[in-house]
Design a protein around this nucleic acid. Structure first.
Lengths: 110, 110
DNA sequence: TTTCTATATTGCAATATTACGATATTATTT
DNA sequence: AAATAATATCGTAATATTGCAATATAGAAA
């Protein structure tokens, strides 16, 4: 009869997946890197940096924002996008805990 | 004239995005967690644990594997899937470096 | 060699993502 | 109040993902 199926996914699973999904496109990884590299984090020129149109970049920014990876700040006419350090820390800790769990069970069949 | 567009994405950006994309689905996050939780890492019963058909689980496993998140080991009739600790460490370090970079530039406009 | 068990592949329908031109919005400057 | 500049939204075409039933494959057991 086997184990019973979990009817759905946990909230943590859903929310983690949403963050990873947001990061799962080269353009969005590039946006993250550009935000970190840029002198100030006034980031309207992401559009100039990426090989994509303005609407497309705007859409990618929206996805990063709604997943909580970045935050936007209205700065006069422009908008300043920055990384959400709380989310980044959460993700770092998540992978840290995975490593801990891997090391705990040293029944390594692979 | 503004900055010139990067013609394409870097290999690092593409490869990071592929790993995140592989993790960007609740079923695949659940698979990771199950592999870690399970007594041994003989994992045919992932199918019994998840609310998905066997072909669908197999497909998710394939995606995780080809992104280098997990590895599969033939074990007689069954296959044992385990996390690739090298990849997990790489991702942990990636977020660690993001945090470092955030802290370096304390010109926080957000 | 036949049967059984575990996993993978194929084919396909439903849905989601990606990208962009056109247009809307909002704040600034004139 | 225009005109300008920066960003967002809409509509839509092309493509990719998700999920499953049906089927294939490969090893173990009989």
């Amino acid at each position: 009869m086997g184990a019973s199926k979990t009817d759905e996914y946990s909230q943590q699973q859903i929310s983690l997946a949403a963050m990873f999904k947001a990061l799962g496109h080269p353009a969005r990884v590039a946006i993250i890197q550009f935000i970190l590299k840029a002198e100030s984090c006034i980031c309207g020129d992401i559009v100039n940096e990426l090989p994509l149109s303005q609407p497309t970049v705007s859409q990618h920014l929206k996805e990063l924002k709604s997943a909580g990876i970045i935050q936007g700040n209205v700065e006069g006419n422009a908008i300043c996008y920055c990384l959400n350090d709380k989310t980044v820390k959460l993700l770092k800790d998540y992978f840290g805990s995975l490593i801990d769990q891997i090391q705990l069970k040293n029944s390594n069949c692979c």
